[in-house]
Amino acid sequence: MNSNRLSNTVATVILWASGFFIVGLLVFFLAYILGQGFKVLSLDFVFGPASQGGVGPQLFNTFYILVLSLLYSVPIGVGAGIYLAEYAKPSRLTNLVRLSTECLATVPSIVLGLFGLIIFVNVLGLGFTILGGAAALALLNLPVLVRVTEEALRTVPHAHREGSLALGSTQWQTIRRVVLPSSILGLITGITLVSGRAIGEAAILVFTAGTSVSRHYPDFNPLVAGETLAVHLWYVRGEPLVANADAVAAGSAALLVLVVLFFNLAIGLPARIYQRRLRGSN
């Protein structure tokens, strides 16, 4: 009996320690990244052009590529998610789609980058472009979008669908008027999650969107190369020729984390809280 109680106490202490260590690690990472970054961050750094030591063009490209990649991946990802949640019956096609989604989710991002390189740079001959980078990045988003859409739709009670179908609605009307409205917050949370990941991605973009920025700023031409913030952080590390490489790296790292935090806290968190409240009141 005593040894049981002892092992229970020891295990409890170890588990608490692990929990605190994990949270402590995160706090340390955030404090360090932001602490180093705030020494560098200024309006000129965030929005200024490269010639004045700023990362404005990179920040612009980051969002531009993100938006374009969502334009590709959201319709397909949400569509496939709707298929799996609403239409799919156990069949070979369904199994194949599910397996494909899981496979695509584990493909290393560098492999997605090389695939983009083959298609956009070599087959289509476009060179490094924002368009190609966004398309390759869309492949990273796609499986996550399928999964979050399916999960969000599955939280809608079956009775709601039956209620609508029983009134003579078609399946599409039911999806559009009942299922999608009640799962929209889940979808938004999912898209934020995807965006946060896509913003920090670099391996896919090095050989699709390239490591240089346009001379114009902002440049909306999708057929020019467009280095993002994450790629920039990678690039300055290896380039001793960049002036103040350390400061630029620290600033870029902090800016990236701030953008991700913003996505998580300003969009993701309210949606999550609101959703919980919605469910709690039911």
Binding site: G19, I22, V23, L26, F29, L30, Y32, I33, Q36, L193, G196, R197, I199, G200, E201, A202, A203, A230, V231, L233, W234, R237, A249, A250, A253, L256, V257, V260, L261, F263, N264, L269
Partner: peptide
Amino acid sequence: EIMRPATDLFVGIPSVVYGWVGLTV
């Protein structure tokens, strides 16, 4: 309630930033 979003934030830190912290710390 603290740990759940905290582990989500770990995912949010970009891989280049992990590399950079590795280099500098």
